[in-house]
């Protein structure tokens, strides 16, 4: 591990949701985050990848306090914020911001862009109106939108522009860490490129650290320094982007990378072998949670739950047999 300063430390974080029957009795737990641990270094972009439903958004929301953690620690700028109630943690969490997967969801359709951008400042600061307006205009310029957009409503601007407004909203509070949940999903390649370049330049300009949640692996490879791979509520592999993409250790990471179409290369559809889909988080298999789909599974995998091993120079993997 390099000596870079850790800005966010996550230790054995859990988020369980109760599963209830029709009489509202709890009949089990949905283990959406199950002992997730990793750390984020100041200034880096850490990618979080994994299949739909593996818990990426829940992780982001639990870090933010939108969900209360069931157990574990989240140390942000020196304070454990995992168990704090939202009003207690507001002071710390102002500098930790979450950018929603669906930009439409974070913008109120009845509000103009101006009102949407003023709102966080009204809630979190005591700035007088003229100073708020000045800050809003400055940020709007930074995300590349003309001031004439201030008077428009969300439905009057394109999907790519809505994402810019979503980013602007978050930046008004001068965060140090931003959790970006699928910031480019559903966008066309050309719009996607503009948003990615914007994210990179905002990071320079404001000295930001990003948690970049995505299932687009080619984008993650392009912009993240490190990557955490999640499978069913657990980080199964984490390390330097190049190390992971060139020599994935965990069988799940290997399947994931093997599934990406490579234009000009052999067709993935001619060779892809991973079968089935992840089991439900209410009925996790015993031992290794990947074993129901793992091409390398053995007897031991059903008995023992593998932990992350730091056996490689620049990556860690949770598999009994990874070499």
């Amino acid at each position: 591990m390099s000596a870079a300063e850790t800005i966010l430390e996550v230790e054995a974080l859990r988020k369980y949701f109760p599963v209830r029957n029709v009489w509202k009795r709890r009949i089990g737990w949905l283990r959406v985050l199950d002992d997730v641990s990793f750390s984020v270094r100041r200034g880096e972009i850490l990618g979080i990848v994994g299949e739909s439903g593996c818990g990426k958004s829940t992780l982001g929301k639990t870090l933010m306090g939108i969900h209360t953690a069931s157990a574990g620690r989240v140390i942000f700028e020196g304070h454990d914020i995992a168990q704090l109630k939202p009003h207690q943690s507001r002071r710390f969490r102002e500098h930790l911001q979450y950018c929603y997967q669906d930009p439409g969801a974070s913008l109120d359709p009845r509000w103009t862009i101006r009102s949407s951008l003023h709102e966080p400042l009204v809630v979190h600061t005591t700035l007088p109106e003229p100073e708020r307006e000045a800050r809003v205009r400055e940020i709007l310029r930074a995300v590349g939108l003309p001031e004439t957009h201030l008077d428009l409503y969300p439905h009057e601007i394109s999907g790519g522009q809505q994402r810019r407004v979503g980013l602007a909203r978050i930046l008004t509070l001068k965060p140090s860490v931003v959790i970006l949940d699928e910031p480019t999903s559903g966008l066309d390649v050309s719009v996607q490129a503009t948003i990615l370049n914007l994210l990179l330049s905002l990071r320079e300009q404001f000295g930001l650290t990003y948690l970049f949640i995505s299932h687009d692996l080619s984008v993650v490879r392009m912009i993240c320094q490190r990557v955490a791979v999640m499978y069913l509520g657990r980080v199964v592999e984490i390390g330097d982007t190049e190390a992971i993409f060139s020599a994935p250790r965990h069988p799940y990471t290997q399947s994931l990378l093997a599934a990406i179409p490579r234009i000009g290369g052999p067709r993935v559809t001619d060779s892809f072998a991973l079968e089935g889909e992840p089991p439900s988080p209410t009925a996790l298999p015993s031992g290794c949670r990947f074993r129901t789909r793992c091409p390398k599974a053995q007897k031991r995998c059903a008995d023992e739950d593998p932990v992350l091993r730091a056996d490689w120079e620049r990556q860690e993997a949770a598999c009994h047999f990874a070499t």
């Binding site: 299949e51 739909s52 559903g186 299932h215 692996l217 399947s255 994931l256 599934a259 990406i260 179409p261 993935v268 559809t269 001619d270 892809f272 991973l274 079968e275 889909e277």
Partner: peptide
Amino acid sequence: TALDVTVQAQILK
């Protein structure tokens, strides 16, 4: 469009 890479590969195949 709405699927993950591993499921996408299965469906395309």
